[in-house]
């Protein structure tokens, strides 16, 4: 059985020469910590999207029906995606803008794979409202793109932030053209 330990050094240890007991105690706590972390991870990761949710994570959209100057809104991952068939004038204005003046500098060609079609996540980068400007007759803001009514963010014809509190441009989702008329988002 345990006797009171007279060897002070090994019982309490010191900084330079930790006693064996200190080593065991530290090692025990370290192993317990590792174990706890290993258990915590699956319990946290289960909150992430499940496999079936991820399987629905991309959609295919037929864009042949969108007339020039019109937009459609589709739902992707629970969020609205704006697809706009831009007019030549809108494309020209987007290109004419001096990038240096922008809050989030980006040239238009970097935001649209084919200039005629602009694809955007329709979520204001300020606090998540859906900007207006999709339907004819809606306010499009000072730059003729989109206007977020929540706190007044103005986006231009390339979906770039021009005025108001939003920090960045409307996000361009990953997409590619499967054919001339079908795009896959996601």
């Amino acid at each position: 059985m345990v006797k009171p330990d007279t060897n002070k050094k090994s019982a309490s240890g010191d900084a330079k020469d930790p006693g064996r007991r200190d080593f065991i105690v530290v090692a025990t706590y370290a192993m317990a910590g590792l174990g706890a972390a290993a258990v915590a991870w699956p319990l946290i990761d289960q909150l992430n999207p499940a496999a079936d949710t991820l399987a629905l994570a991309n959609i295919e959209v037929d864009i042949s029906k969108i007339a020039v100057g019109q937009s459609i809104t589709v739902k992707w991952r629970g969020k609205p995606v704006f697809i706009r068939h831009r007019t030549a004038d809108e494309i020209a204005r987007a290109n004419a803008t001096d990038v240096a003046d922008l809050r989030d500098p980006q040239v238009d060609i970097a935001r649209a794979e084919k200039p005629e079609y602009l694809v955007l996540v329709g979520v204001c980068t300020h606090l998540g409202c859906v900007p207006l400007g999709q339907k004819t007759g809606e306010v499009k803001g000072d730059y003729d793109g989109w206007f977020c009514p929540c706190h007044g963010s103005h986006y231009d014809t390339s979906g770039r932030i021009r005025k108001g509190p939003a920090p960045t441009n409307l996000e361009v989702p990953p997409y590619d053209f499967l054919s001339d008329t079908v795009i896959r988002i996601g």
Partner: peptide, 10 residues
Amino acid sequence: MRDVNHGWMI
């Protein structure tokens, strides 16, 4: 069991 991350284990 199949889709939720680590669901089978939990």
